[in-house]
Amino acid sequence: MTNPAPQPPSQHNKLTKAKLLRRSLFLTLGAAFMAVGLEIFLVPNNIIDGGIVGISIIASHLSHVPLGIFLLLLNLPFLFLGYKQIGKTFALSTLYAVAVMSLGTYLLHPIPPITIDPLLAAVFGGIVLGIGVGMVIRSGGSLDGTEIVAILLSKKSAFSVGEIVMFFNFFILGSAGFVFGWDRAMYSLIAYYIAFKMIDITIEGFDESKAVWIISENAEVIGDAIMHRLGRGVTYLNGEGGFTGGAKKVIFCVITRLEEAKLKSIVEERDPAAFLAVGNIHDVKGGRFKKKDIH
């Protein structure tokens, strides 16, 4: 009996391999950015980050043990928790990213810092760190065990993930004052805040979607202008005023962050008294969100 001719790999397998390669690439780049931010900017200037990374920097400074060893060892217990409670893919992605980050800090340690100005180090270190962490999170991993603990605790408490992480970091960043001096603790807060903002931008992108609600007597005029000048579709909703009881027409649409200023000017030009509410949204699917060509 002859063996059947080998079949070409399915499109599904190709897509799976492509996604895996893309994930691995961005996990590697993100972890490398993190290592650069730590060893080229923050650590030489005695500035720390929050979470396990901050604890590792303090422990490395006090013990003179390489930073990468603490980054790996202190994250391992949380990776075990992540594997048990969150999932295999997340845990393996995190393990890979942490390993690359730890190796990166070891290789970059002999390289002198770009700047010894603590403010410049805090600003640019925070930017590089935020980009790196954002890339890793966007690729389905993490670089800090406290995030895993926060995710698990948030499921059993009334606190959000962000509130729990902030609680941990309050003590970690505060401890930097006793180890490195209070001026370095304040620079650490600057770096942490900048990194936090850069994580948001990296995850959501500059094209982050925003939901818009507009209540106006000139709803159709404004809606037509949004469709023709922004190329965005609008939906008209029928509402009722809570105080007056009168009928109201509500415009709903979804735009990007970069279009927000233009939309506000459109509304201001046509009805300065219009009610306008803008909110961030994290995911848009279906419908006609894709922008139409404007001629």
Rank of each mutant, 00 (worst) to 15 (best):
residue 2 T to L: 02
residue 2 T to C: 00
residue 7 Q to N: 09
residue 16 T to Y: 02
residue 19 K to Y: 07
residue 20 L to K: 05
residue 26 F to W: 09
residue 26 F to L: 08
residue 31 A to N: 05
residue 35 A to S: 15
residue 39 E to H: 09
residue 41 F to I: 11
residue 41 F to P: 02
residue 45 N to S: 12
residue 45 N to W: 11
residue 46 N to W: 11
residue 47 I to V: 10
residue 55 I to F: 08
residue 56 S to I: 10
residue 58 I to M: 12
residue 63 S to H: 14
residue 65 V to K: 12
residue 65 V to L: 14
residue 67 L to V: 10
residue 69 I to Q: 05
residue 69 I to L: 13
residue 73 L to R: 02
residue 74 L to M: 13
residue 75 N to K: 09
residue 80 F to M: 11
residue 82 G to D: 00
residue 84 K to Y: 05
residue 84 K to L: 04
residue 90 F to E: 03
residue 90 F to D: 03
residue 97 A to R: 00
residue 98 V to A: 01
residue 98 V to T: 03
residue 106 Y to V: 13
residue 108 L to H: 08
residue 112 P to S: 15
residue 113 P to L: 11
residue 120 L to N: 13
residue 122 A to W: 10
residue 128 V to C: 02
residue 131 I to M: 01
residue 133 V to Y: 00
residue 137 I to V: 03
residue 139 S to G: 03
residue 140 G to L: 07
residue 143 L to P: 00
residue 146 T to E: 01
residue 151 I to P: 00
residue 153 L to M: 12
residue 154 S to W: 06
residue 155 K to F: 03
residue 162 G to L: 08
residue 163 E to W: 01
residue 165 V to E: 02
residue 166 M to F: 10
residue 168 F to H: 03
residue 171 F to W: 05
residue 175 S to N: 10
residue 179 V to K: 07
residue 183 D to K: 14
residue 185 A to E: 10
residue 185 A to W: 07
residue 185 A to V: 10
residue 186 M to P: 06
residue 187 Y to W: 07
residue 189 L to H: 08
residue 190 I to L: 13
residue 195 A to E: 09
residue 204 E to T: 03
residue 207 D to P: 05
residue 207 D to H: 14
residue 209 S to Q: 11
residue 210 K to H: 04
residue 210 K to P: 00
residue 212 V to M: 01
residue 213 W to P: 10
residue 217 E to T: 13
residue 220 E to T: 15
residue 220 E to R: 15
residue 222 I to Q: 12
residue 224 D to N: 14
residue 228 H to I: 14
residue 228 H to D: 15
residue 229 R to K: 14
residue 229 R to Q: 15
residue 231 G to R: 13
residue 233 G to Q: 13
residue 241 G to H: 01
residue 241 G to P: 03
residue 243 F to M: 13
residue 243 F to A: 12
residue 246 G to E: 13
residue 248 K to R: 15
residue 249 K to F: 08
residue 251 I to A: 04
residue 253 C to G: 03
residue 254 V to G: 04
residue 257 R to W: 01
residue 259 E to R: 09
residue 261 A to Y: 05
residue 262 K to M: 05
residue 262 K to N: 04
residue 265 S to M: 08
residue 266 I to W: 05
residue 268 E to D: 11
residue 270 R to E: 12
residue 273 A to V: 15
residue 287 G to H: 12
residue 291 K to Y: 04
residue 294 I to K: 11
residue 294 I to Y: 06
residue 295 H to L: 15
